[in-house]
């Protein structure tokens, strides 16, 4: 996709989005445009509605108010174009003792495209293999997923999303539970995919890491706190809005560190997704 197209029309458009579960407001009046080819990090504390935002873009949650458009249409109404969205769910959402090998998990990315009752063709297997090459896990194809490390497993799930050759990749907390070095090399991979032309949207509660990779950061806490370049959004005001007024900040290095004296303001938040 060319730059001019990206400027002409964002591939994700959220206008005045609100999502309400029973009486609980998960998202309130969110506006967001994501141009093609960008790398957006959605950050916010637990329970801020990050996952809800991702699922709204994915079309599995329908907003109670506002309009969502992905590739110019509501995401639940994309039909064949749905394949252009790749999704990597939260790491803990699958049973790690499930008897299945990494290569088969990647091939599953093609199952929707193949359709009910039909068997994968050589084209499908080729696409799965290419996806594994892109994330550097071809040697793991025959490994049962239970024997993979957290970082390897996340690459398998990225490869599964890539097997469909998407234009947009959505990731939900992809580095939860992996160490810092693994997390760093995982974001290196996302950055590489972004440079290859993929639009990447990653949800994380770890602003410190994603800010080094993303070209845009959206801070949400039910409502949009701020949306801009990483350098602009890491201000005390924003963090105070996200984490509570009593948070203090140590400004040294590119990202301010935060000291929170008491945690009850955080603990009152209940995250449905974690």
């Amino acid at each position: 996709m060319s730059e001019t197209m990206a400027e002409a029309k964002p591939i994700i458009e959220l206008e005045d989005i609100s999502v309400t579960y029973q009486s609980h407001v998960a998202l309130n009046n969110i506006n967001l445009g994501v141009p093609a080819g960008s790398f957006l990090a959605v950050v916010g504390p637990n329970g801020s509605g990050k996952t809800t935002l991702l699922k709204t873009i994915l079309g599995t949650i329908r907003p109670s108010r506002g309009t969502v458009r992905v590739f110019g249409r509501p995401p639940w109404d994309l039909g064949e174009e749905r394949r252009r969205i790749g999704y990597v769910p939260q790491a803990m959402s699958v049973d790690l003792r499930f008897p299945i090998r990494a290569g088969e998990v990647v091939l599953m990315g093609r199952y929707g495209r193949i359709g009910l009752m039909r068997r994968p063709s050589s084209t499908d297997r080729e696409a799965a293999l290419q996806a594994m090459q892109r994330v550097g896990i071809t040697d793991l194809a025959n490994e049962p997923i239970g024997r993979l490390s957290g970082g390897q497993r996340q690459r398998v799930f990225v490869a599964r999303a890539l097997a469909n050759d998407p234009d947009l990749l959505l990731l939900d907390e992809p580095t939860t539970g992996v160490d810092i070095a693994t997390s760093g090399s995982f974001y290196d991979l996302l950055y590489k995919l972004h440079k290859e032309g993929l639009t990447v949207v990653v949800v994380s509660h770890d602003m410190g890491v994603v800010a080094n990779y993303a070209d845009t950061v959206a801070c949400i806490n039910q409502c949009m706190v701020v949306h801009g370049r990483p350098g602009e959004v890491a201000t005390g005001e924003v963090l105070a809005c996200m984490y509570g007024p009593r948070a203090a900040f140590l400004d040294h290095g590119p990202i301010p560190h935060m000291v929170v004296p008491e945690h009850e303001t955080l603990d009152t938040e209940k995250d449905k997704n974690e």
Binding site: T60, P89, V94, I100, L116, M117
Partner: peptide, 23 residues
């Protein structure tokens, strides 16, 4: 036999199967 791969997908990861467009 007919739904082998589809049943495997929903058994392994129902949410992703739904997202992928399988019923």
């Amino acid at each position: 036999g007919l739904f082998f791969k589809d049943l495997l997908f929903i058994t392994f990861d129902s949410e992703m199967a739904e997202v992928a467009g399988l019923p």
